[in-house]
Simulated scan of single mutants.
Amino acid sequence: MNIWNTTSDFILLGLFNHTETHLFLFVMVLMIAITSLVGNALMIFLIHQDAQLHMPMYFLLSQLSLMDMMLVSTIVPRMAADYLKGNKSISPAGCGLQIFFFITLEGGECFLLASMSYDRYVAVCHPLRYAVLMSWQLCLRMTVGSWFLGAADGLMQAVATLSFPFCDAHEIDHFFCEAPTLVRLACADTSVFENVMYICCVLMLLVPFSLILISYSLIFAAVLQMHSREARKKAFATCSSHLSVVGLFYGAAISIYMRPKSYRSANHDKIVSVFYTIFTPLLNPIIYSMRNGDVKGALRKCMSQCPTSSHE
């Protein structure tokens, strides 16, 4: 098999064929992606506009929505353009950028969810010291740290992946460039890189996940000691939205990155990738808006002010 250099384009085989059924599924996915972008943009707008939401908890939530918007924008427009135009080629630079942004946003979201779990721990277990233990300075540091750690991992994986020589079979059986899928096309021994990449993925997933488990273990221990039923109910309501998002995100991420190779298939990887790159960003604002009284109040206030503003 011949070896070709990374100046040649890759071919993304995509997610859909040109059949009526697949056209319907494509339209559905596109509508979900657009709804996801609108929902997350609305969440950011409400948090920015409503003074009652100017708290570390909601600032972190706005960063989560920003990451979700960028994730959808990184994957879906390219996928839609390739399907509509029939041009499935992507340059190595474009492929590297997709890998970088994808890993940056997924890795950053891991650490951001861990930061949000600490925020919930302080709010439930140390409410009187919340302003001290969860200061704006600490909040900004955790946010910057989440973006930085994600970007460092993304840059490392993008550069390392594209440094391999690739074979004639340069077709990527996916709808976007993902490092594990691309490495399978390399005409070189990638075992060391794959092991390092696996360790990085485990650390990026398990370290934040362990922090989340510790935070919620302490939260549940504190909740069980509360004598008031209303206090317990309020504490669970405070944490339920974040727990739902954590379950969705980590369930999909662990399924795709920590599953043994022998159990992996291209179709399964694509289905799971659709879930956490398109569906999960849609569910996040829905979960937080439906289960959070402050967000619902901000939305009602915004809707009540819109007619007034247009009338004036």
Rank of each mutant, 00 (worst) to 15 (best):
L283C: 12
F275T: 07
S273K: 08
S265F: 06
I271F: 14
I256Q: 06
L282M: 13
A252Y: 00
R264F: 14
G251V: 03
H268Q: 07
P260R: 08
A253V: 09
H268L: 09
H268R: 12
M303H: 01
R259C: 05
A253P: 00
N292K: 03
Y276K: 04
V295N: 08
V272C: 06
R264S: 10
P281I: 06
S289H: 10
S262I: 09
V274T: 14
S289Y: 12
S262Q: 11
L299W: 12
Y288P: 02
R291A: 09
C302K: 11
G297F: 07
T280M: 10
D294T: 06
F279L: 15
G293P: 00
N292F: 01
S255R: 04
K301C: 04
L299C: 07
L299F: 15
M258D: 03
V274G: 05
A253L: 07
L299A: 14
N267S: 13
L282R: 05
I256E: 07
N292P: 04
D269L: 09
P285M: 10
K261M: 07
A253R: 09
M290S: 12
K296N: 07
C302G: 00
F275R: 02
H268T: 11
T280G: 01
N267F: 12
I286P: 01
K270P: 00
A298I: 06
T280H: 12
Y263E: 14
R291K: 08
A298V: 03
L299M: 14
G251F: 02
K296F: 05
A298F: 04
P281C: 08
H268I: 06
K301Q: 09
F275Y: 13
R264M: 15
R300D: 14
M303A: 15
S262R: 07
I254V: 13
R291S: 07
D294W: 01
A298N: 03
A298L: 03
N284P: 01
K301N: 14
M258Y: 01
R259I: 08
I256S: 02
S255N: 10
R291P: 00
N292S: 09
R259E: 01
S262A: 10
N292G: 02
R259K: 05
V274C: 15
C302R: 13
D269T: 08
V272Q: 03
L282P: 02
Y263A: 10
P285T: 07
V295A: 05
S273H: 11
K301S: 14
